[in-house]
Design a protein around this nucleic acid. Structure first.
Lengths: 342, 342
DNA sequence: TTGTAGGCGTTATCAC
DNA sequence: GTGATAACGCCTACAA
């Protein structure tokens, strides 16, 4: 079928080991033969079998990525960063998506293990301890992106965005505009990202000497629909909040959509701040003020950290790496409005 | 490192071939031993090495996907469909992104070839004949999604959306609302998708007995910025068009954004129709009327077609498959407005 | 400077 | 029923 080093060896009248050496440009083989063989290989359309090589080398030069769904702009952007960094390091990317179904999550990990990837990156967030244990049995470094886990194995690390700081920035911005009653719409329940953003929200309130009011924390689900549904509860509050910080942009977009349908004038009647800065945040009306996550960078850093861990693991060193925490930045657009006049 | 069938064989006191058979549940091995070995394998945390298996089986059970960038909502949605179908068929997905750089496009194909993927899916659209030739040297079935190519090899097929029909639907919708001067904003130059959508636009005009006016075809670039820039030329036309059909949603979003900034009231001053129905099409203001492409289905069908081709190739049959053309559907939202009163 | 031989983890084809 | 043995394509001691 496909041409192998043996085929080349036969045509070149040398042994296959000489071909192998020549193709890896080994100085052990005479320059003349080396070039002759390389030319021949090109002419014959040789393509090395990476699997065969991986089998003997004990490394596949590939990184496995577990996502819930790739059809999420946030995930896709991070993926872009991963692909980019992997490519630079001469690694390839194997994608496994779990659709957030526990069963498929296990299958995904099992697949990556069987593929003998050198490194696993998980971009799922909601991983239980059991799942994590399963993940670590795979025996290669694991890097979690924006996912928390208290007890990790020795080669498991995380790259996260500083949620608490982001929540603080968002809320401080609203406080700075003069808002006193600021609501928060949560993401999925019991999600640590959510807890941290909420903590940042409380930090900013405390700093401004504003009381924290449990009633201003409204449940969302991290998606557009959650934002839409939250509007009703928000309008029912009395006095009505003048501003709202949303767990993420999708929630904010849903909220804005519902608010406009309800006849509110934004941002005058309600200032809105999101989180993520997904690609379309600037194209909704009003354009969304948000905390920009360095998505591609999250991906890049995860790969870099993983490769560093891999190197250390190979030398049996205790990993010197530590978790990476990147800060997001406040992007002010129209949805948070002008300073409040009272 | 990792436990192999030989390790299991040693512990079970049998030969490694028996273990191999037992693990594939072969009836050749006694039920009792079979179960004993399977239990042992589970206990020892055995994971089959897919590469070793692939080496001897001559198939990797993996599909390679070439994209320009995964950080494009359209691409991501199609990818979702691909991953889904691949998973169902017990195939894994290897992602290679080209960033639309010719150099990396070649590298991507080379990588997939070296990985010995059983099937390649290309989602890039702007592929030259040279690139295609390179692609076919890989020797496995190739399925193009939304990409055209006049001369293909025997195992190269395409899954496309019916661009002409989509362009027709979009334009007919505007005609039906009473518009007589309808502009078209193109995508990237010389892109066959673009030519086809334009052809559909002309079909609808012709059907309605409206003249085709070259001056109403304005250059875009397939992205948001192209739409933004097109507004100026559109406003300079006299008489000014009352409606516009855009090559894709991103173009339409850019146009709408610029139009609002210029003080136009949409859709009253200008009715807009896009193409794709990307996730946020319904959240911009006014919500975008568009042609919905069955994105996930494009991906699924590509995988199915590829696997069918693979089966035929293995039996050395002339492929019975033919290109698949899926129709998009018109999704009417606010941006195309109410019927024109004149 | 080159060739020979062994092995990576599988499956498959023989014998027994 | 089970066990040797070869083979897949590659790399790498070790020998020559």
């Amino acid at each position: 079928m496909s041409v192998s080093i043996k085929d080349i060896a036969r045509r070149a009248g040398v042994s296959h080991s000489t071909v192998s050496r020549a193709l890896s440009d080994s100085p052990l083989v005479a320059l003349e033969t080396r070039q002759r063989i390389q030319a021949l290989a090109r002419e014959m359309g040789y393509s090395p079998d990476l699997q065969a090589r991986a089998l003997v080398m004990g490394r596949t030069q590939s990184v496995g990525v577990v996502v819930t769904t790739i059809a999420d702009p946030f995930v896709a952007e991070v993926m872009q960063g991963i692909e980019d960094a992997a490519h630079s390091a001469n690694y390839s990317v194997i994608l496994a998506s779990s659709q957030a179904e526990p069963q498929r999550e296990i299958e995904a990990v099992e697949l990556l293990r069987a593929k003998r990837v050198d490194l696993v990156i998980v971009l799922s967030s909601r991983l239980g301890a059991l799942y994590l244990a399963h993940l670590e049995r795979i025996g290669v470094p694991v890097v979690l992106i924006n996912s928390h886990s208290q007890d990790r194995g020795p080669y498991t690390f995380a790259v996260t965005v500083d949620n608490r700081h982001g929540g603080y920035l968002a809320t401080r911005h609203l406080v700075g505009l003069g808002h006193r009653r600021i609501a928060y719409i949560t993401g999925q329940a019991h999600h640590s990202d959510d807890q941290e953003r909420l903590a940042g929200y409380r930090d900013a309130l405390a700093e401004a000497g504003l009381p924290f009011d449990e009633a201003l924390v409204l449940p969302g689900d991290g998606d557009v629909t959650g934002g839409q549904r939250a509007l009703g509860r928000l309008l029912a509050l009395s006095p009505r909040p003048t501003a709202v910080f949303c767990y993420n942009d999708r929630t904010a977009i849903g909220l804005i959509y519902a608010a406009k349908q309800a006849g509110l004038a934004l941002p005058r009647d309600l200032a809105v701040v999101g989180f993520d800065d997904i690609p379309f945040a600037s194209f909704i009306e009003p354009a969304l003020t948000t905390i920009a996550q360095p998505m591609a960078e999250l991906g890049r850093r995860a790969v870099e950290m993983g490769l560093a861990l891999l190197a250390e693991q190979r030398e049996d060193k205790v990993p010197a790496a530590s978790n990476v925490i990147l800060r997001g930045r406040l992007v002010v657009r129209a949805s948070s409005g002008a300073p409040l006049v009272r």
